[in-house]
Amino acid sequence: MNTKVSIAYLAGLALLVAAPTVIYPVLVMKVLCFALFACAFNLLLGYTGLLSFGHAIFLGTSAYVAGYVIKVLEFGPLAGIAVGTVAAGALGWVIGSLAIRRQGIYFAMITLALAQLMYFIYVQAPFTGGEDGLQGIARGSMFGIDLTNDLALYYVVVGFFAAAFWLIQRTIHSPFGQTLKAIRENEQRTISLGYDVDRYKLLAFVLSAAIAGLAGALKALLFGFATLGDIHWHTSGEVVLMTLLGGMGTVFGPVVGATVIVTLQTELSDKVGSLVSVIMGCIFVFCVLVFRRGIVGEGVALYKRMIGEKVH
């Protein structure tokens, strides 16, 4: 981690620890779940150059699996989170293996198609509760802490988020992350230097799916249910929007994007009702047309211009 990122990371962590004194913790937890989801997605889109268009399937699979482990098998929240995360990673391995053989738009379409296929399986499967969803997932307790208390759950969620976020940024800056960037920058050249690029893409895909799964399991624990909404393509679209709005290929961009989108949705849904999706659509168009680098990306570019560095 370079110094600037370390400072931002610690400052962010301090803010999170203090946040519940001023903000309703459930809202912050929801933001954190989506932020983690977006960070996982950004590892693929921003650092490997892969647009997965069915990423909600990993979020939702883990939510269902965690819910099932907690509610039906009664193994408690920690086991639920662990099994859910592993399940999402495993599904990531399957979908990733099929999708990475194709490039660009075909890759995106295969991920979408497979996610839709899983969606229809989940609608029929008995363990998901179909249209009703999997309700009544008890928070229980973890490490002897009673999670039914919002504040207690809050610090557990912050702990998971901080650890996963650290792992993602570590990955980005690792030797593996360097290889991913090479693939993003010039795949053909990376092959010509002797890299078996498909294996790197697959590992990135599995990591991303597993972390998206972690976000899904935490979300299921937070709200006590897993529903078809978690695996719907809408949710896949939302994570693309969050990442683009915040700034893809930046460490903090997805967090900022998720914060803005989740807050807007929460604030606006009682005021404008179904117009929310229209507003989201407008934000998306705005991002694509004039705000290409996203909030963090544009901020960094502005800062660089001010100190007289070149911007690309």
Binding site: L167, H173, T179, L193, G194
Partner: peptide, 18 residues
């Protein structure tokens, strides 16, 4: 370094420091 780093055998090590 992209060309050199394959020789280290750590190109899959996502947990290692850059």
């Amino acid at each position: 370094r992209i060309a050199l780093q394959r020789s280290l055998g750590t190109t899959f090590h996502f947990w290692k420091s850059g």
